[in-house]
Write a protein that binds this DNA or RNA. Structure first.
Lengths: 241, 241
DNA sequence: GCAGTGAGCGAACAGCGTTCGTTGCTACGA
DNA sequence: TCGTAGCAACGAACGCTGTTCGCTCACTGC
């Protein structure tokens, strides 16, 4: 059931941290799980760890959350729920859409490698995910694109955002803050790997090692966005059936 | 080490299936694992299951394979190794590239939900993956696209292929063959879910439920390919630095 | 014919998600 | 004010996972 009974909260907030019976709730569990993902990464997230953080046992969580998959879905829903939903303006739809997607990506990368969970869950079924899809569809429709083009496009685009977020997050240790040194070291490692390959077999990869690992701010992400929207506009005249 | 010592193969092929000491090898293990993924899906793949299939224990596999991650990498490498690599023709580069990507996708979807493993492994480091990247780069360069555009594009494109394969495979039960009935049932379920949503909050999703779940052959995949290549050509004039 | 080497292997470990049966607090009715 | 019903919380356990540890023993080179 989605409606958890309202949690009782006896006494002042945080007054008795070690009272025997803590007041658990979906929200508290999701909050705690998100904190773990933020600081230690998705791999460190397990039911026992969440329970430990709440000073209880894993079994207690199952009164509020069906299973780990549902917990992950709730995490994603929470992250997608943090998005602002602009009013579509036909004159600015493209920039609005790009801004919306930037926000979506930033939200994801700010929560460790949570994007990895989003990658598996391909079709949005949670309120937050549906809200995001609805907003994106509205922006595309505001651009005057045909219905079927919008339908196909919304899939490709959100896929790109999630995948980019995943790639971005994989460059950072689960530690947390954007240590520029860390990212640079990772990129450098990949570049030297490409450079070290046999040039007879991989001439282009070797020659383009620099271009392939270029990492200047959000240039890569922005390139993909422009590519997608240019392609989208070019496909606008396409007919179906 | 990548060079496994040449496996001894005593007697005729399959002559003594129940001799005490089986001749294991990387190839045999990979082959067996791939068979399991094909027939039962990626979730059913574990070391004990592979060992059981080979009539031995899980521990025996670790003499040939470092760990499960390496096994997955080997599986992916094998699948990517099955690709044909066309000679780039500047007059036909776009159609060649599209055909190459279709092949890539078909290879992936023909092996259950193996694409899920490919999704995590973002940067190709195995011979097969590098071969695919090299070929794709050659095709893009044959199109006369700038170096940095090719570098960014090869990432976005291969991402799209893998993600599409993943989505496709998630529509089938691990059972195996493309049961059209099954896919239709899945799609229908998603469509009716979209239709059943509250129209006040999700007007576009409800109205476009049909378009969003349209599944006519490879139209969806081809749409994405055309979108990407149109966008790519549009981005060709872009300058960097 | 024999010693030595290393693959094969059973057993075990630590960790995972999840379930079971019990406990004990809390809110409510008598 | 007391008793009790209901249910969240909980410890322990189950079955599964990937992986490691030594022992065994068949094959190889001498």
């Amino acid at each position: 059931m989605t409606t958890a009974s309202t949690p009782t909260w006896p006494g002042a907030f945080g007054a008795e941290p070690r009272r025997k019976r803590r007041a658990l709730s979906r929200e508290l569990i999701v909050e705690t799980a998100l904190k773990i993902v933020d600081t230690e990464g998705l791999d460190a997230l397990n039911m026992r760890r969440v329970a430990q953080e709440l000073g209880t046992g894993a079994a207690s969580l199952y009164a509020h959350v069906a299973n780990k998959d549902e917990l992950l879905a709730l995490l994603l829903d929470r992250v997608y729920g943090d998005l602002g939903h602009p009013e579509p303006d036909p004159d600015r739809w493209r920039e609005q859409a790009k801004e919306f997607l930037r926000q979506q990506r930033d939200n994801l990368v700010s929560h460790g490698d949570l994007a990895r969970a989003a990658m598996i869950q391909n079709i949005p079924t949670s309120p937050g995910g549906l809200d995001a899809a609805e907003t994106m569809l509205a922006l595309l429709r505001a651009g005057g694109l045909p219905e079927q083009v919008c339908a196909y496009a919304v899939d490709v685009i959100s896929l790109y955002v999630v995948a980019t977020a995943l790639e971005e997050s994989s460059r950072k240790k689960p530690g947390g803050q954007t240590d520029e040194r860390q990212v640079e070291a990772y990129i450098g490692g990949v570049r030297s790997f490409f450079s070290s390959l046999p040039a007879e077999r991989y001439p282009l990869i070797v020659a383009m090692a620099g271009a392939l690992t270029r990492n200047v701010g959000d240039e890569r992400f922005e390139f993909g966005l422009d590519l997608l929207f240019d392609g989208l506009v070019a496909q606008a005249g396409r007919t179906f059936d």
